[in-house]
């Protein structure tokens, strides 16, 4: 069962979320939709993120692979270079740096795609059509709990609550 409530201001959305959480709903059963980001209190809808962790890990991995790769290329098919060092930290440092940054940039982009749910089509079924200035709250709930949850939403200040069945 999916309830979609329509709100006019962020304060009532916040109180709706509080009320729903008091009824035992978890943050990942609730989605808020709007045409611009809504500022809610930090703890209200916690969306855990591993973006920084993954970005840093990826940076380290890319850096190490760059070092390994450059080291490998300079020793594979070795050419005679006379006096020149075949591998030198000073002058390949720039390359390692750029690879590190590339690793963290690409990981951030990938994590954006994953954490925004843009890669998961299944979850994004009934997204409300957005209207300027409105905030929509979508709740996944048991069929039996739909009526009290809707009441709870109206109490918090919802202008309209729609019900829909979830398929699959």
């Amino acid at each position: 069962m999916v309830l979609t409530a329509d709100f006019g201001d962020p304060q009532s959305v916040a109180s709706a979320i509080q009320a729903l959480k008091a009824r035992g709903y978890r943050a990942d059963e609730i989605d808020v939709f709007s045409t611009a980001p809504v500022e809610l209190a930090e703890a209200l809808l916690e969306r855990p993120s591993r973006m920084s962790l993954v970005a840093v890990t990826s940076a380290v991995v890319f850096c190490l692979s760059a070092i390994a790769f450059v080291h490998y290329t300079q020793h594979d098919y070795p050419i005679v270079t006379g006096g020149m060092p075949i591998f030198s930290w000073w002058s390949t440092g720039v390359i390692f740096y750029e690879f590190t940054m590339f690793g963290s940039i690409s990981a951030t982009f990938v994590m954006f795609l994953i954490e925004s749910g843009l890669l998961k089509r299944r979850r994004s079924l009934p997204a409300p059509l957005l209207e300027e200035g409105r905030i929509y709250l979508r709740l996944f709930c048991e069929a039996g709990d739909a009526v009290p949850a809707a009441e709870c939403l109206y109490e918090a200040g919802a202008l309209k609550v729609d019900e829909a069945e979830v398929r699959g």
């Binding site: 050419i79 005679v80 270079t81 006379g82 006096g83 020149m84 002058s91």
Partner: peptide, 21 residues
């Protein structure tokens, strides 16, 4: 040159130092 400035800057190793210097 033994330490030739032209050598390290070549991106493709077109100029390099051979075993006989």
């Amino acid at each position: 040159c033994e330490d030739a400035p032209c050598e390290p800057v070549c991106p493709t190793y077109a100029t390099y130092h051979n075993a006989e210097g």
